[in-house]
């Protein structure tokens, strides 16, 4: 019966509503452009729109595929719908999902893990929206008076976040983690030397790490 609730009721509900809300989200992301066109009569020339699109697509196009695939094992179906409509995935949604899973004592990739990740991410969406709304209400003038050192110090939170999350998982996978770290650093050096193309590299590291993880698991070297 437990099996049924998740597979037969929960997942179909999430898939149905996930699709509806996300397609609506795709539509609404053109809302500002639509308002500018209809209310203010400002429409850029088609070539400008196309050039802008080509520039951004060549910069991040591969990431459209890399991120959903890389993060799926942690956040599952519901998390995937949520993460990509709300954005700020690596720097906010995934950390929240993982801390929530750890606190609740559930494993990522399981039914329980997916449900807890969904709760964690939903909360992060609310908190993030509240903080940003308060920030934008405080207005540019107030925000701009934030001292420069504070603003530049805030940029240093992100590397600490990446290091901390990596470590949190490394503690649980002591055999696998050093191997992944070495591969990541080699690939990063390769990217810097322009031997390896930037965005393709992350997906490569993800698949290689999963392959090594599965291999070590089958050999009984990773639990």
């Amino acid at each position: 019966m437990n099996e049924n609730t998740y597979e037969k009721i929960y997942l179909p509900y999430i898939i149905k509503w996930g699709r509806r809300t996300n397609w609506l989200g795709v539509l609404l992301s053109f809302g500002p452009a639509f308002m500018l066109a209809v209310v203010f009569g400002v429409v850029p020339p088609f070539t400008a729109i196309l050039n802008g699109f080509i520039a951004i697509a060549s910069a991040v196009g591969v990431v459209w595929f890399v991120e959903p695939i890389s993060y799926f094992p942690i956040i599952g179906v519901s998390g995937t719908y949520m993460a990509f409509i709300s954005g700020n995935i690596g720097n906010l949604r995934i950390p929240c999902a993982m801390v929530a899973q750890k606190i609740a004592g559930v494993e990522p990739g399981t039914k329980e893990g997916t449900i807890i990740a969904t709760l964690g991410m939903a909360v992060s969406i609310v908190v993030n929206t509240v903080i940003l709304t308060a920030g934008v209400a405080a207005g540019a003038q107030v925000l701009q008076q934030m001292p420069k050192p504070v603003v530049s110090a805030l940029q240093l939170l992100l590397p600490a976040l990446f290091g901390a999350i990596f470590t949190q998982f490394a503690i649980k996978k002591l055999t696998l983690a050093p191997i992944v770290l070495v591969i990541s650093i080699l690939v990063a050096l390769g990217v810097r030397a322009k031997v390896i193309p930037g965005f393709a590299s992350i997906l490569g590291v993800v698949f290689l790490s999963i392959a090594i993880g599965v291999f070590l698991y089958k050999k009984g070297m990773v639990k």
Partner: peptide, 17 residues
């Protein structure tokens, strides 16, 4: 499943780090 998830996280955040 947990090994796969951990490997994906380690790779994603290892790459970022």
């Amino acid at each position: 499943m947990s090994v796969i998830a951990s490997a994906a996280v380690l790779a994603a955040f290892g790459g970022n780090s």
